[in-house]
Design a protein around this nucleic acid. Structure first.
Lengths: 259, 259
DNA sequence: ATCATCCATATTGGATACAATCAATATCAT
DNA sequence: ATGATATTGATTGTATCCAATATGGATGAT
């Protein structure tokens, strides 16, 4: 079994390793689900708020029918909660949800890298190096910008996210386990990515810590040292989880939805 | 000795500890999704077959609208594949899908038990003991029945599944990680459970092997030995995965759907 | 015969219409 | 005034309708 995709086309899809991204033509419902989901993540529909079908329909210039189907999908994805005859409300994770999710993610990305060590190609390692380089540069830039003007750094944040996703994405891809990839992506859904960046970008020291953890991961995987790679990856993610929990708790619970 | 239930109607019911089970009133779409899903698992809608909305609507005496929404949910759950303007077809896992899923599940249940060891109560261990006792008895019964009359054992199979689920369910519950529980349940969706039981119930020696693996797990968790518990749990599940893959390959690919 | 093209039909996709349910206010009795 | 009940409006849930697209068979050319 090789880590390479036989049908190859999607392998290098650097852009947003998010889940599905059906945001293209001829997939109206999927596209709607993505767009609604994006607005939830962006905070436009805050946690706990009701999503009215008619309002969404008007906003996206469609009828309620495809909106309803999109909401059914988001319900299964765990982004919203749907109560009979009462419609949909936006879910928000509490500290425990975050802790639980990161514990699972740490385990799964640990598995991913221990598999990846075996199969990863030089080309993939090179992609990780480049992603890491960009990552480090952006962090420097963010920290520098933070010291002068707080506004400037905002437009670099997407790049920060993207290079981080690329880094982790290569590892997951190289694991050769498609189901593993899917499960990890599902874990990200909605909150994880968002909260992590919120938690990290608020503190220069923690961003640098993050960079050096990536460095350690890259070093271990380059040496094909499965034990060490797994150890540092797991630590890296658990640490990110701690930060996310702290950040969430410092924010005062936004939506302590008792799901 | 080969598989006993060659014709489509094998392995009915089973539904027990599945994920959501919204099959009650006032949740029509959820209920429809469950019922359609159940029929897929039961083999009534075989892999690769098209699910026509009108046919389903008539079968369940509703209009196409709730059917469509149920199909959207099943799409996200990975039970069916939905192609634009071409409707839904039933997905079937191939050997690789099974391998991938079991690898992930082994890791996650390994995590579960290593967490559970810390927090599990005597009452929960007692539940595991009882489940294990039932499990062993049913296996004896199945093997005995198999030697005389092949039909008899079919009505015990659901009990076999249920006691096995109870055993694993206690561990997962005792892990205290709700997200972990959800992710593991999602992994079961559709095929995993079904294939495992198909693979195992065809061979007495393997069923006994399974029982003794449970015994080892129970022993380790009773001694609160996290390392050993994890080791035997992981081995147990990976072994089950191997059997499932073998079984699937021996069946000649039913649906080698190129998803 | 084999293959491509075209047309009739079946099926899906989306919008609208109607029924059922809920929320919030108004009304009434105590 | 307080609490229970009734009523109105808003919102969700299901069914039906029409348009867009695909499917499958017939027709015709090579």
């Amino acid at each position: 079994m090789s880590a390479q995709e036989p049908d190859g086309t999607n392998l290098l899809s650097v852009a947003t390793l998010s889940a599905s991204m059906a945001t293209s033509a001829e997939q109206l419902v999927g596209s709607l689900a993505d767009r609604i989901s994006a607005k939830i993540v962006a905070g436009e529909y805050p946690p706990g708020s009701r999503l009215r079908q008619e309002a969404l329909a008007e906003e996206f210039s469609v009828s309620r029918t495809p909106i309803r189907e999109a909401l059914r999908q988001l319900e299964v994805k765990g982004v919203i909660q749907h109560r009979p005859n009462q419609g949909a409300i936006v879910l928000a994770p509490n500290a425990r949800d975050i802790r639980d999710a990161y514990q699972v993610r740490a385990e799964l990305e640990g598995l991913a890298i221990s598999l990846a060590v075996e199969w990863i190609t030089d080309e993939q390692i090179e992609r990780m190096r480049r992603a890491q380089k960009r990552f480090a540069e952006i962090v420097d830039k963010l920290i520098a910008a933070r010291k002068s003007n707080a506004k400037t750094h905002l437009k670099d944040v997407p790049n920060w996210v993207e290079s981080n996703d690329e880094f982790h994405g290569v590892v997951i891809e190289a694991s050769g386990n498609r189901r593993l990839k899917q499960v990890i992506q599902d874990l990200h859904l909605g909150f994880t990515r968002n909260i992590m960046l919120s938690a990290l970008t608020m503190d220069g020291r923690r961003m640098r810590e993050n960079v050096s953890q990536h460095e350690a991961i890259l070093s271990a995987i380059s040496r094909h040292d499965a034990i060490e790679a797994r150890k540092v990856m797991t630590h890296h993610i658990l640490r990110s989880g701690e930060l996310a929990v702290w950040w969430l708790e410092s924010q005062g619970r936004l939506g302590d939805s008792g799901r």
